[in-house]
Simulated scan of single mutants.
Amino acid sequence: MALHGKIIFRTDGGEKIGLNHLIRCAALAEMLREQYECMLAIRVPNPSALQLVGGVFHSIISLPDAENYDGDELISHLQAGDIVVLDGIQFQTDYQKKIREHCKIVCIDDLHSHHFVADAIINHAEGILPKDYSTDEHTRFYLGARYALIRQPFIKAAIENSSQSPAGELSIASRAMIHIGGNDFHNTTQKVLSALVKTEMINEIEIVVSKMNPNISLLEDFIYANRKTAKIMLCKNLPGDELCDLMKTCRYMICAANNVLYEACAVGIKIISGHISKTQQELLHGLVAKGVVNNFGNFLTEDENNLQSRFELFMNDETTWQQLSNQKLLIDGQSPVRLFEIFNKL
């Protein structure tokens, strides 16, 4: 099946930790699957999560649930010549050491919070430098948007977007998308939605959530109560191609600073973003510095009335069109070529 060998992606995703790690591993697997056999090793896989990404991997290794992460769960599945991709804060130094006794390791990282023994580190946040990490001497670094881990429909969109002019004042002018995250325990989606509706500046709003979101019934109630104010659609478990197509119909994107933020940059859209976890802060700050997104800070603590005022200012600010030009420079659609070379050199 594979020309270059086997890659085992070790990550988790579900109701407790969300889907971002899983989605970006799937994005990477999609880039590599024609040249490598790509397997997903995941603890107690959630059916809704696998619905979004399962088709990308050639096979799934279902690992048992356990309190600790020591690497033993994975070792029996490894063979000489395999490559393991680790994505998650739980895979720290001791875990990496144990796995590296058997094969090469690539770590996808957000936080540079511990010592790494990996052969390669991918961190697609802008502004991160090798000196920010503690690593062994053999570790190589692949940092910044040149290595953006975005799904195939968004790679194509970035290539198309690079040759197009900004949409301007077209029919999409009054459409917005809200995509806070897969789980959204705090129901930040509804707070953002309510603030946006109160601006009376958006006629159509697309809400994107996962089926694991515990607040779907509350969102449905809100949508029904405001059905005469705005046309609001609730979309659950959208695969990448459908999400990309829907994003192209919108003028504004309001999203947390996760992988979807990069995918929005690939499409070319006015973006408001904020963080809902510590792991998102560096990605957000790096993209703010590149002029591709407006930073609303901590979505969890931001007051709804303040959100409304900031939305109104943003949507009345014509200079925000510059975001679209900057996005073209940031995401060039060539990250699959660069990422393949990382694995080809291991």
Rank of each mutant, 00 (worst) to 15 (best):
S171R: 05
C250K: 08
Y262D: 13
G168A: 11
H275I: 06
L283P: 07
I202Y: 04
S210W: 04
P214I: 12
D184T: 07
N226F: 07
I178Y: 01
T199E: 04
C250A: 13
E204D: 14
V260H: 06
N259C: 13
L196E: 06
Y224F: 11
A225L: 10
I216H: 05
E282S: 14
D184V: 03
A264V: 06
L243S: 12
G182D: 08
R227K: 14
L193N: 08
K236D: 00
R227V: 02
A264S: 15
A225F: 01
P239R: 02
H285A: 14
E263C: 01
Q280D: 14
H285Y: 04
I172S: 14
E242L: 10
C250T: 15
L196Q: 09
E263P: 09
G168L: 13
L261A: 14
L193K: 04
G168H: 07
N259P: 04
P214Q: 06
A266D: 08
S194C: 06
M253W: 00
I223W: 06
C244N: 05
V267D: 05
M177F: 01
Q190G: 00
Q190D: 04
N187G: 04
K211P: 01
N226C: 09
V267H: 03
L219P: 09
Q280E: 15
L193H: 02
I232Y: 00
P214W: 05
A230S: 15
N203P: 01
D241Q: 11
M201N: 07
H179V: 13
S210V: 11
N203E: 15
C244I: 00
K278I: 12
A173S: 13
H186C: 07
C255R: 08
C235A: 13
Y252W: 12
K211C: 01
N215G: 07
I232Q: 03
N213G: 11
K278S: 14
G286Q: 10
